[in-house]
Computed example of a mutant assay.
Amino acid sequence: MSQNKFKLVECPRDAMQGLHDFVPTALKSEYLNLLLQVGFDTLDFGSFVSSKAIPQMADTTAVLANLDLTNTATKLLAIVANLRGVENAVQHQEISYLGFPFSISETFQQRNTNSSIAQSLNVVEEMLSLCEKNNKTAVVYLSMGFGNPYGDEWNYDIVEKWADVLVTKGVKILSLADTVGVSTPEKIESILPKLISKFTETEIGIHLHSTPKERFEKIDAAYCSGVKRIDSALKGFGGCPMAADDLTGNIATEDVISFLTSKGEHLNLNMNKWNEAMNLSEKIFGNV
């Protein structure tokens, strides 16, 4: 993709990980294989984390073996939360990206990865080294990038400080993540242009959670801020099981597609496969 094209990152892993009932491996694989045919830049397909923490993703290796990558340009991204996960993920040639949730809230970093910010920075350093050795690219999510509900200090300077630390370490892709839906269009338009203009050699993306009624204004704010990388999930399913955000799901991919199309952006997506995936999603998510 050229630099001017949007990178759409579809996130079925984020959509599924908090579901109570285990989604059978065959059904997961069927769903992912449809999404691979749509034409997204990246598919956030699974995670190498503790099965006790996220039981829904315990079959990521089995799912990976079932994916058909022969006729797709979509790259695979897997989430990791510690060094063991990194070491497992880099063994799989099919995976292009390793994603790590780096929270600028100490409380949430402990809650999400059972480690401190300092310990997590060490994991990022190890991840960068192992990615380089194994021809992978690290994607670091600046989690709680728009604030947090835990009372931890938050302001733009803190966001920029950690972005600077990570970019200096060698991170090439940063995604500002709003895990609990506290972002506003004003915050997005205040923070993102500054980061994009300061870190010109870094791909700056956005991973937003939102209530349905606020989705379009947040997408619009991201677009106006110059963001070219947007994470989303079909129908806005999902949320973080480690955060108290029952009402906030992911940004809905169909809303992103609709918005960008209305702006004249050519996304080059296979909408027939997209509609098939929309239909199949009911088997996974039901009335969630």
Rank of each mutant, 00 (worst) to 15 (best):
Q3R: 05
N4T: 02
L8K: 00
P12F: 03
D14R: 03
H20R: 11
T25W: 00
A26Y: 00
E30R: 12
Y31S: 01
Q37H: 08
Q37L: 10
V38N: 06
F45G: 00
G46M: 09
S51Q: 13
K52P: 01
A58C: 07
D59P: 02
N66R: 11
L69P: 03
T72Y: 10
T72E: 08
A73T: 13
L76K: 02
I79G: 00
I79D: 00
L83S: 10
R84Y: 13
A89C: 12
V90Y: 03
E94D: 11
L98T: 05
F100I: 08
F100E: 01
R111E: 10
S115W: 05
Q119N: 13
S120D: 05
L121M: 14
E125W: 07
E126L: 12
L128H: 05
N134H: 15
N134R: 13
N135F: 06
K136H: 07
T137E: 13
V140D: 04
Y141C: 11
L142R: 06
F146G: 05
Y150F: 14
W154Q: 08
W162S: 12
G170R: 04
V171P: 03
K172V: 05
I173V: 15
T179D: 12
G181W: 02
V182C: 15
E186A: 14
E186C: 06
E186V: 15
P193G: 10
I196V: 10
E203H: 14
G205M: 07
I206A: 10
L208A: 01
S210A: 15
D220Q: 15
S225F: 02
K228L: 06
K235A: 08
K235D: 07
L247I: 12
T248E: 14
G249H: 03
N250R: 05
E254S: 03
S262L: 13
N270M: 09
K273T: 12
K273I: 12
M278C: 11
M278W: 12
N279D: 15
S281M: 07
K283G: 01
I284C: 07
G286R: 08
G286E: 06
G286F: 04
V288A: 12
